[in-house]
Amino acid sequence: MTAFHFCFDLNYFGWIRQNFLYDPFWTTQRTAIVSLFLFCAGLGQAVAFTQGQSWPRFWRRWAQVAGCALLVSAGSWLMFRDTFIYFGVLHGIAVMLVIVRLTAHWGAWLWLAGLAAILLPLAAMPLHVAAGNLHLLNGRALNWIGMVSMKPATQDYVPVLPWLGVMWWGMAAGQWLLRERPALLPGAIPRAFAPLAWMGRWSLSWYMLHQPLLIGAMLLVR
């Protein structure tokens, strides 16, 4: 993610010329990064749910994510007035965390629910055609659901569908691991991966700080 954003920032300042919106080299990386984010978030929820995380503690963490999402919107509005982030990855995670928490007891059905969530947006275009183009679903008020006929103009867009499916699969995988391979998740981390483990423990802080630091450094050397 950091390397991806570093290249994005280089492109923003004109030091490289890349098409981050349409070039598969970059769009595939973005899809992989977001998928990993959401899968790990679902897996983390499986651990928290299994350990009996209380609702007050859940809401405290949720408030941190939601608050950071608002900061992302504000910061992106300053940089990209016309394409600011109003429903990016943190906004999506905030909504999906609640859904995943409420459905944590679904067990193995989470796999099927995840598949349905991933496939459902494929019906968006036929739905728009059959209904005479549902402009309401393309508007900012509802396009966060994901049933759009065209992607909105925004710097980051992570709608509930299909991405909820990835988080559901993370929850399902986490529950399976905790039930069938309980010794795997709490296992020791190789020393070489210790820095990555540190970033994982402070993932939200890293996510929020790395871009301002990268952009600030680039502004200093321009």
Results as ranks from 00 to 15, higher is better:
V89Q: 09
D9W: 01
D156C: 01
L97N: 12
W15P: 06
Q45T: 02
W168C: 13
V98D: 05
A172E: 15
I189L: 06
M208H: 00
L36F: 12
P152F: 02
L220W: 14
W77P: 05
G146T: 03
W198M: 12
S73M: 13
R181F: 04
A153Y: 00
R81S: 12
G44K: 08
A194C: 08
L119W: 05
G165P: 05
G200V: 03
E180W: 08
L102N: 06
A124G: 01
Y86K: 04
P121L: 06
I118T: 08
I85E: 07
P152Y: 02
V160K: 07
R30K: 05
F58D: 11
A131C: 12
H91A: 03
Q64Y: 11
A48Q: 15
I93K: 02
R201P: 03
I99E: 00
F4V: 01
V129G: 00
Q155V: 03
V65W: 05
A172Y: 10
G14R: 14
W198Y: 11
A183H: 14
D9Q: 07
H105E: 14
A74F: 13
M125R: 10
A116Q: 09
R201G: 05
W144E: 06
L219M: 12
L36T: 14
G14P: 07
W77K: 06
M125V: 13
G187N: 10
L38R: 07
L219D: 02
Q211S: 01
L70T: 10
W109Q: 11
L164V: 12
A173R: 01
L70M: 13
A130Q: 13
V166K: 06
A46C: 00
N133W: 15
A108V: 14
F13V: 15
D156V: 00
M218D: 03
F58S: 09
L136K: 04
F4E: 11
L122Y: 13
V148H: 02
L209W: 14
P162A: 10
R17S: 13
A194R: 12
H5Q: 10
A113R: 03
W163T: 06
Y157K: 09
L134Q: 04
W206C: 12
P212F: 04
I33C: 04
W59S: 07
R222S: 13
A108W: 10
L161T: 03
L71P: 08
A3M: 03
A141M: 12
P56S: 02
L36A: 14
G44N: 13
S205A: 11
P186R: 05
M171R: 12
F49K: 11
F6S: 04
V158E: 05
C40S: 12
R81I: 02
A41G: 11
Q45F: 00
A194E: 04
T50R: 15
N138C: 00
V160T: 14
L177M: 15
P24V: 04
V221G: 09
P162N: 01
F25Y: 14
F20L: 03
A130W: 15
Q45C: 04
D82I: 04
H5I: 14
F49S: 15
